[in-house]
Design a protein around this nucleic acid. Structure first.
Lengths: 205, 205
DNA sequence: CGAGAAATCTTTACACTGTCAAGTTAAATC
DNA sequence: GATTTAACTTGACAGTGTAAAGATTTCTCG
């Protein structure tokens, strides 16, 4: 009875339907004009139907941010997994790939990405959000550790390495997402520049 | 008649008064709960009074973002000017100081900083915003150029240098501002880490 | 100087928002 | 199968942004 689509009084799986509707609403309207009533209308339910599942609009957007965090981590992981060639710089190539996956996700799903880091419409005290956020960071930190291990170095002796990579990647991603929204250039040479910068940063840790 | 405070029908300098009220509103309510009617109430005028000066709420927030961009650039510039010691790494020290000024502004005025980079409530097509944004970038680029000049290198032969610094700095600033809002740690050791990361990045250009 | 024009500001109105409270209907439980 | 519980609808309310029309002041120019 989880996947039924009959128009009974009880929806059956309204929670998932609302999350999907919310994503469409977010993409079409943007974070700012996002409307809870609009989501309910898309899902074909009354404007107060979301309340039992998500409480208020912050609850719904926090849940949606959690969906995005999962996809975000998956995108980084699979971007790393795609590096299969076995050359001496494989560890660094994976680290760079993670950064490029980060940037790609931010630019292709800029609304969802914004939601992840938008503290206003999302509840930062929600434990699952912090957990998912640190999961994403963990993936990057693991790869930094692998790079450090090439020179027999350890994370604890190089506490700045992972934050530096994270900051540079996040900076590139958010500035690029912003530029893209504002109609700025976004050609391949920009992607190449990002990759060069990530390589240089990876070499600097 | 620009500074009169009489309670005549015409305010005299309502535009500036609204900007000041808007800043207070932004700080107290946040970007999300920012209300145009709230601003008007703070300024002691009717809720439709802002319209002749700013149009809609986006116009007011864009103007406020422009104020913030100016202060932002000033903060970076004076942070650089504060480096007066004449040692061999002065150019790099100035570059790092700019980054620290960037981070300091973002953390001390996180709402105004958010506004600068919030594309939703601000109109990105406003020319003055792009101009002010590139002015801030210009300050950093000039300092990168000075650092490159130490080794007789030029900006055009090192097109990634300035973007790399910008991205790392912006990433540190926005992640730190976010952490601060969410009640995370913000001690001096964190500032020290930022400075080390900026030094390392400056050395990598 | 003074009348018409233009700008500023207020008032009123409207559609829209999020959320609460009270009903209605279906499912779950015992 | 009755009752409790959850899901959902309906109705209401305060608050929002903005458009239109009216009131008041300043500006412009003859």
């Amino acid at each position: 009875m989880n996947t039924k689509t009959s128009k009974s009084y009880h929806h059956g799986n309204l929670r998932e339907a609302l999350l999907e509707a919310a994503e469409v609403e977010l993409i079409e309207k943007g974070v700012e004009k996002f409307s809870l009533r609009g989501v309910a209308k898309r899902a074909g339910v009354s404007h107060a139907a979301p309340a039992p599942h998500f409480g208020d609009v912050t609850g719904l957007l926090s849940a949606l941010a959690s969906v995005s965090f999962k996809r975000f981590a998956d995108a980084m992981q699979s971007s790393s997994d795609a590096v299969t060639e076995d050359h001496p710089d494989k560890a660094k190539a994976k680290l760079v790939a993670i950064g490029m996956g980060y940037i790609k996700y931010a630019s292709e799903h800029s609304d969802m990405f914004d939601l992840q880091f938008s503290s206003e419409r999302t509840d930062p005290s929600k434990a699952f959000l912090n957990k998912l956020s640190s999961n994403s960071y963990q993936i990057l930190e693991d790869h930094v550790q692998a790079v450090l291990a090439l020179d027999n170095r350890a994370l604890k002796d190089n506490p700045d390495a992972a934050p530096m990579l994270w900051a540079t990647t996040h900076g590139l991603a958010s500035l690029f997402a912003r530029r893209k929204r504002n109609g700025g250039p976004q050609g391949q040479e920009l992607q190449d520049a990002f990759e060069r910068i990530l390589w240089r940063t990876a070499n600097a840790i």
